[in-house]
Nucleic acid binder design. Structure first.
Lengths: 213, 213, 213, 213
DNA sequence: TATGAATGAGGCTTCATTCAT
DNA sequence: CATGAATGAAGCCTCATTCAT
């Protein structure tokens, strides 16, 4: 289940063997996040990132073979943070509670880091980055949750993808508008998610579902 | 709530007073659309657009004060096309039918023009473009529909924004995955939209709604 | 017998359609030659070349897709100049006179433009440039001369390559030493060239020659 | 004619006083040779050399004050190897045999180590390296050989330089073409060398020679 | 007005070299 | 002494924009 070791844009150029190096790598990724947040995609360039990280541009390129690699590393970090939070969903008693937990994690994440969505979009439009980001684990999590809330869905991956899109669409837009009321937002996201699940089954062949819910 | 008439990046440099000029403007915008579709954001640059439009880069700058203006013009055109299609929703008998119509228009639009979403994202991240795009009319349409489907909502603008986010989130993700089955997609979007509306009311002060549905 | 139209590093990016453009291209190549002569390979960079040409770096890249293309263009120009001079060798009455003419051209060329040799070496060591330069015509010229001086050689291409190597080796080294006495140099080069031709035949299968000279 | 003892780029930073240090120096030079052979001039950089030598970049700079010094050291080593082989020429009975031996050594060297030629060219074009390489000994060898083959030459240094140029020009070109037939190549080089010597005398003041051969 | 040549700020990246550990 | 992380000058190239013709 390990990944193939094909040469990847993503890989670090050198594995940091000293503590200092690891800190540098971390500080660069963090700086990238901050630059993105503060300056937007317009200001997301390697010089600005190095400057904010307090390292030279040379150091940045010691660890990342290129800008894309850094972008991917940032996406990975954010995705992993989200995943690490969201994975606790599976410890919930019921499927419903699991999905609610996932939604809560999503909302928290989005309102803290509204930048991830934009990054992901850019990533998708850059041919070089396609397929570099590992979504597998994450998708699997959502599918697992779907299976618990709605065990008889024929295509849980479709429902999982839809749920993700609903949750992210709503939270992104809310973040965009500067909405800060977590409770209200979470309530509305739940409405959409559970509403989707309870209704998507009502039709025949096109439905994501095979049986009752 | 009308816009001030401050000098805007968006405005065309000259009002095309002759038919030929208007054609040129149109051809440039169309070329921009084609370049975006064919080359992605990577290839979306003024020289490429001028080349594809069959005009000189100089002419492009005769009609648009800058790249941002052209970008905005393209967004406006696409938004208007969508609006012109979606506006027919209001001619439907029932509110339900109106919302269904809107969803249908959204799905059609998205699967035909998957580029709009990306453009809108860039636009949001570019400070220069913020607020240049007229969404007012469009938002008003969705609010009007919401009022018809769920007349007693306290904050129909919130529900309208949410519905838009749900619909676009789902269709964008579907487009991204290359999904082509309109019927299935539409069914699932309806599930999410109507599910949202029917459930969002169930709570007190945080809800977007004041009364029953 | 035309060359395939595969995308080549060599091609100009745009065919200059205005007189000014053509001048610019010419001035850039000439500047490249001057920079190489004055600063050596160390100083042979695009910024220096643009500066000396009196154009912006942007203009350089309007016409040359990259540094390699410019390098190749320079090599082509120098090769062509040499060729245009050397081609008159074929108008000489005898084969001997033809070879002498070729040697004279070589010596003149080398002492005027000692840079070509260096460039050719760079070209050979840069994988990107391999095969971009057309030597065909030139090689054909030398082979034709060899056929006239020594009609019975079995492998005139080998002899041609050897003669070229001898002539260039001697003139390069002389240029390197700063030798300026054309007459003496030419005499010695003739000695080597004709000495080679008259002696190379003396052995069996390994010789470049089949019969008497 | 002796060299001044000005501080030289070339000198090692520290005289390796211990066996281990000497080994390190040797391994770095060997690594430089391998990198040059394997990656060409493009890949000939200090970090790559240190990596291949299995030492840190810091150590490399402990032993060499800079890249140029390392380059020169490599050239010296190769030159010395050649010299050690070629010096046996002087043990030959006749001058003819001596020159033949020299040619044989040249051909062997070139076909085994085609990289030296390229390095020498770079060295010549880099002002920093000019004059750093000791050729004296080597030149003296060739002059000595010339004196034995053609004792009455007025300017044996010129003839020596020419012979070197002929031999290297031919072998370099052959190496470039990938020629592997030593015997044939050697035959042709002899033809050029002896042809040169026998013919260069035939003129008056410009000749490299004063009397008969 | 149309053209397209020209501009140059600014982004990405490399690599020789230094220096703290 | 060895290490390798860090540095930054310098090179390559792009693309939004201007301006002479």
């Amino acid at each position: 289940m390990t990944h193939s070791s094909r040469p990847s844009i993503t890989r670090l150029r050198k594995t940091p063997s000293q503590a200092r190096a690891e800190e540098t790598v971390e500080s660069i990724i963090e700086a990238a996040a901050q630059v993105l947040e503060a300056e937007g995609l317009e200001g997301f360039n390697t010089n600005a990132i190095a400057r904010r990280a307090g390292v030279s541009i040379g150091s940045l390129y010691q660890y990342f073979p290129g800008k894309d690699a850094l972008t991917v590393a940032l996406i990975q970090r954010e995705t992993r943070r989200f995943y690490d939070d969201a994975a606790a969903a599976l410890t919930q008693r019921s499927g419903k509670a699991a999905l609610e937990y996932l939604i809560g994690a999503s909302v928290r994440q989005q309102l803290q880091r509204p930048m991830l969505a934009k990054l992901l979009d850019v990533q998708e439009s850059s041919p070089a980055l396609r397929g570099e980001v590992e979504k597998v684990e994450f998708d699997a999590l959502v599918v697992a949750i779907v299976r618990r809330v709605a065990p008889r869905f024929e295509h849980p991956e479709v429902a999982a993808a839809d749920l993700l899109a609903i949750v992210q669409g709503l939270t992104d837009a809310a973040g965009e508008r500067g909405e800060r009321d977590l409770e209200s937002l979470e309530h509305r996201v739940r409405a959409a998610a559970f509403g989707y699940l309870s209704r998507v089954a009502r039709r025949g062949k096109h439905s994501a579902r095979a049986g009752g819910m």
